[in-house]
Amino acid sequence: MFAIELARGLYTTWREMFNKPVTIQYPDQRRPVYRRFKGRHSLHRYDNGLEKCIGCSLCAAACPADAIFVESAENTNAARFSPGERYASTYEINMLRCIYCGYCEDACPTEAIVLGDNYELSFTDRHDAIYTKEMLLEALPEGGSLTPQEVKPGVYTRSVPEMKDPVD
């Protein structure tokens, strides 16, 4: 009797030996993330290169972990960072405090701060975890210019663009 149970169990082991392994060999193989995965943040730009972030601090206010620090300053047409009057002169996220909840992305009125796909974040020093604006700003889109830009007056007057409700 005991042997029958033993045989049953061993049969399971025998069977499984010939099944395909489910292990993903990270870092050689990387599984793609789900569509709404919340990873490393980035500050987006418009197509012309202007930053979307207008320094409103709503992300900082929404953040449950108080991970975001924002200081604002005035745009001029000679040195324009974002459309409208206001831009973020300082923008820091403490990635160790951040819980990757995405509330900042929900709060942002211009869809500037977006949580992306990158989850491969590690630091050897706590100070390195404070990501500055330079680190968070996304790369320049094609055809865009670096900020600050010199622009004609009267063109970029609207801080919050006309937007549709977000679709998935």
Partner: peptide
């Protein structure tokens, strides 16, 4: 205007 994000009074 839709200024709350850039308005000091917010």
């Amino acid at each position: 205007p839709l200024d709350c994000p850039i308005c000091d009074k917010g």
